[in-house]
Design a protein around this nucleic acid. Structure first.
Length: 874
RNA sequence: GGAGGCAUAGCUCAGUUGGUUAGAGCGCUCGCUUCACAUGCGAGAGGUCGUAGGUUCGAGUCCUACUGUCUCUACCA
């Protein structure tokens, strides 16, 4: 097949993906002869389309999966989507709004029908996008958090937790979003420092001229005040404790109570207590047996308890009116500007109201403990390590998890209330009658579960739990969990305690966290900034491989990275380089019988590149194992571009185009061997281009996807030979360098004279040196004086390189050049010498380092002598 | 308030358990239509590794403080 001159990914990416699918390469079987390697996808929300964060997620995971698959593991990448309860519901409500409809207008059933239609549309789209990325996921196991299997797991877990007393229902302060009209968990509230005010209010003591001043940031909640608290140690208020205050505007009589919780230094030292609208004050209310008066409705308007003049008013309008009224009655002392942390809904960004409400909770303390232990005892390991601290921090201070949501899209809570006897029925299967009174009038709880309740079960619900399926048995626990560090609390932590609690095993052994992909200026990508990048557009322009390689290279685990077009371009150029190098190899192999490298005699250059390949294999394998994908990718980039293309391909040309048939066969064998291995090493990162080239390579069959990953072979390391050959490369560089320094065009051939120890090495590679350095002939001399004409010289480790450049040589400049080189060498000698003079170094440093330093010193001394001699002869 | 990250070339970033002369890409300078590739080739310039101490034979790497910056987290009304 003819290869195009430039790399054009559109020619083959879609075609190859389709073929992989048809051949069933993505399918993982529970094969007892293999070791399983499992990763479950961080399920993207069905709310929209993929962004670069997903692209990074999936590139990392797919690279690991492909790597392991090639190493012979039964590698399973389990794909799927998340129903994203609240996020999706918000979107659907928005969509309906365009039709002028509300949830109430269409009803629950119709709403859910719309939601499923949404899921089909966007879930499908996400799958297509993942395929475009080249992700080798097992689509036959595609999961969805609300599919039958996952729903079964949700019920199982809910009922189990309930029966163990780890799920309870109660009136607690929760975070309420008045716009989404649902409770939120603590993790779903985002705080931001907002500029507001501090209102100082005067509460008069009953039947007295005394008063207490309290300060508040939410004056509208004063309507629900049922006490004022002061610190018992506060001398200012000692005499007030136990007295009765008259609440302004309302007229309710409320007590002054003493509570240690009050900070004497802050504000006025007196706190109004509104148990229904503040978590701390709720606690305080419990301590003092105070009445809980809720003054706000679910939609953020004031209710009848707020009093006639405020009933029905929006909370912010009510705030204004209350402040006005307080001012009018003289209760307002002053208004101070104040910046404080205000909670916002993570989906719609409305200001969250802490409100007392009846909700379902998961008791966290008993679940958190073993989850912490698992990480302490290294059953789960975080990469980078530092994230375990963040995990501990959160887990140790964890509070009960509010799991009920007043939404329709999600797992409906499996709890029924008997309308006849009031019995609460918690069951895995829908009950038909009340087990207590046999009554048939059962009403299911209206609420659904927090979306993260089902995601927490993802590593095992997708594999068959609670049933003991073959998949669950073989692939669970999973191996690596890879996602962004921004969802450690939402997801990773919850999977850990859920896995331990429900399966008795940690759900994965490694947590690999990556950072956030930012824009070119380092800003977070967001809809409001309009700086988001659509991976599909990038793929359309540059190909999936270029995007994948760009996302992974130069990035360390856990670090944020910046996306830039120029980086993708650079990687596209790399793909083009690889493409053309392959084209070169394939063109030269055309019509030839390419032998195995075991069947040819390897020259010095051949051994050098094979040696480089082996160290590259070692480096890539090692770093993949450490999840250092950036380093592995970097090693491959350097090896392919610098070592293979810039050096070996050029070196091979003298053999390929020469007369010696054996040398030609040798070069061809090595070219094919090295390229084939490089492609395999590269395949986990850039699956498409490597597959396309692999199929055009001589002596390959089948797909690179299922080829064996290269293994380091010590017999091919050729350390000594490679080092010796590097001397030849140094000579070539020296000649090029000298020519450039006197503006001698590279195409102009020059004579090369060498003072050399290893003449055989030079002789064997003479053609290559002549070709690469632009040399017409090579001779050997003892020193410059034997040449008898103006010459430039450069001293390298085992050689002195002379290039007679006739008129071009400026003796004064040449002297200057040598002088500065001499100074540099002197510096090196001084550095090495002082090290070796240091007794501490000689005695304590590892022997090989000391030896290395000695050899270096010797080398530099030899070079100094030679340079001095050159200077003398000038 | 608590915790953490980052600070290395003009820009964006690598730098593995401390150990050769600190690297890459982009940009820059000079030169090349060399038969795989101008999405290229060759040769260069450019860094007191944020500041100050400390540990060590040896520190970009470990410790302490400081400065700048970003993030997470927390109930200060």
């Amino acid at each position: 097949m003819e290869m195009q001159k430039t790399y054009n990914p559109k020619d083959f990416e879609d075609r190859l993906y389709k073929e992989w699918m048809e051949k069933g390469y993505f399918r993982a079987e529970a094969d007892p002869s293999k070791i399983p390697f499992t990763i479950v996808i961080p399920p993207p929300n069905i709310t929209g389309q993929l962004h670069l964060g997903h692209a990074l997620d999936n590139t990392v995971i797919d690279a690991l999966i492909r790597f392991k698959r090639m190493q012979g593991y039964a590698a399973l990448y389990l794909p799927g989507c998340d129903h994203a309860s609240i996020a999706t519901e918000v979107k659907i409500v928005e969509e309906m709004k365009k039709e002028g409809l509300t949830k109430q207008d269409v009803g629950r059933e119709e709403f859910l029908r719309r939601a499923w239609a949404w899921k089909d549309k966007y879930g499908g789209r996400i799958v297509e996008q993942l395929k475009k990325m080249g992700v080798s996921a097992d689509w036959s196991r595609l999961a969805f958090t609300m599919d039958e299997r996952c729903s079964k797991a949700v019920r199982e877990v809910f009922v189990n937790l309930y029966e163990k007393g780890l799920i309870y229902r109660g009136d607690r302060i929760i975070n309420w979003c008045p716009s989404c009209k649902t409770a939120l968990s603590d993790a779903e509230v985002e705080y931001s420092e907002d500029a507001s005010f501090f209102w100082h209010l005067r509460y008069p003591v009953k039947d007295s001229d005394e008063y207490i001043v309290v300060a508040t940031t939410r004056p509208e909640t004063m309507l629900g005040d049922t006490a004022v608290a002061v610190n018992p140690k506060d001398g200012r208020y000692e005499h007030m404790v136990g007295k009765t205050l008259v609440l302004p505007l309302v007229g309710r009589e409320i007590p002054v109570v003493a509570d240690e919780y009050v900070d004497m230094e802050f504000g006025s030292g007196a706190v109004k207590i509104t148990p229904a609208h503040d978590p701390n004050e709720f606690e305080g209310g419990l301590r003092h047996g105070l009445e809980v008066i809720r003054v706000m409705n679910d939609d953020g308007t004031m209710n009848e308890s707020a009093g006639e003049s405020y009933n029905g008013m929006d909370r912010f309008a009510a705030r204004e009116k209350i402040v006005e009224d307080l001012k009018a009655c003289g209760a307002l002392v002053k208004i101070e500007p104040h910046v404080h942390n205000v909670g916002h809904c993570y989906r719609c960004h409305s200001t969250v109201e802490p409100i007392v409400s009846k909700q379902w909770f998961v008791r966290m303390a008993p679940l958190a403990k073993p989850a912490i232990d698992a990480v302490v005892r290294n059953k789960i390991h975080f990469t980078p390590e530092r994230f375990s601290k963040i995990y501990y921090n959160w887990m140790e201070g964890i509070k009960d998890w509010c799991i009920s949501r007043q939404l329709w899209w999600g797992h409906r809570i499996p709890v029924w209330y008997c309308q006849d006897c009031g019995e609460t029925i918690v069951a895995k299967a829908d009950p038909s009658e009340c087990p207590h009174c046999r009554g048939k009038d059962l009403k299911q709880d209206e609420d659904v579960l927090d979306t993260w309740f089902s995601s927490a079960l993802w590593p095992f619900s997708t594999l068959g739990f609670p049933d003991k399926t073959a998949d669950y048995d073989y692939f669970y626990p999973t191996d690596v969990l890879s996602c962004g560090y921004d969802i450690i609390f939402f997801w990773v932590a919850r999977m850990i305690f859920s896995g331990i609690e429900h399966t008795g095993k940690v759900p994965f052994r490694d947590v690999l966290l990556h950072g956030i992909v930012r824009d070119e200026q380092g800003r977070k990508m967001s809809k409001s900034l309009g700086n988001g990048i659509d991976p599909l557009e990038v793929i359309d322009e540059y190909g999936a491989d270029s995007l994948r390689f760009a996302l992974i290279s130069g990035v360390a685990p856990g670090n944020d990275s910046r996306y830039s077009r120029s980086k993708v371009e650079a990687m596209r150029n790399f793909m083009n380089k690889l493409w053309n190098a392959s084209r070169f190899v394939i063109m030269n192999a055309e019509g030839e019988q390419v032998p195995d490298i075991k069947g040819v005699r390897l020259g010095a250059a051949d051994k050098w590149i094979v040696s480089r390949l082996e160290s590259c294999i070692r480096e890539v394998t090692l770093n993949m194992g450490k999840f250092e994908l950036g380093i592995a990718a970097g090693a491959l980039y350097d090896f392919i571009w610098s070592d293979f293309c810039d050096w070996y391909i050029e070196l091979s040309k003298s053999a390929l185009y020469g007369e010696d048939a054996e040398k030609k066969r040798g070069a061809l064998a090595v070219l094919c061997f090295v390229l084939e291995n490089a492609l395999k090493l590269l395949h986990p990162f850039v699956p498409f281009i490597t597959e396309e080239i692999y199929r055009n390579l001589p002596n390959t069959s089948g797909s690179i996807m299922v080829a064996e990953f290269p293994r380091y072979n010590a017999r091919l390391a050729y350390k000594k030979e490679a080092k010796a050959f590097e001397g030849v490369m140094e000579i070539i560089k020296a000649v090029r360098n000298m020519k450039t320094s006197v503006n001698c065009p590279p195409s102009k051939k020059v004579r090369l004279l060498l003072s050399a120890q290893n003449k055989r090495m030079i002789a064997a590679n003479a053609n290559a040196v002549m070709k690469l350095a632009g040399v017409s002939e090579i001779g050997f001399v003892e020193n410059a004086s034997g040449i008898g004409e103006k010459t430039m010289s450069q001293v390298i480790e085992n050689y002195t390189v002379f290039v007679p450049l006739g008129e071009l040589v400026d003796l004064a400049k040449e002297k200057e050049r040598l002088q500065s080189e001499l100074e540099r060498i002197e510096g090196e000698i001084a550095r090495a010498d002082s090290k070796l003079q240091n007794r501490g170094f000689v005695e304590k440093a590892p022997k090989n380092l000391v030896e290395g330093e000695r050899a270096k010193l010797e080398k530099f001394i030899g070079m100094r002598e030679k340079i001095a001699k050159q200077l003398q002869e000038l």
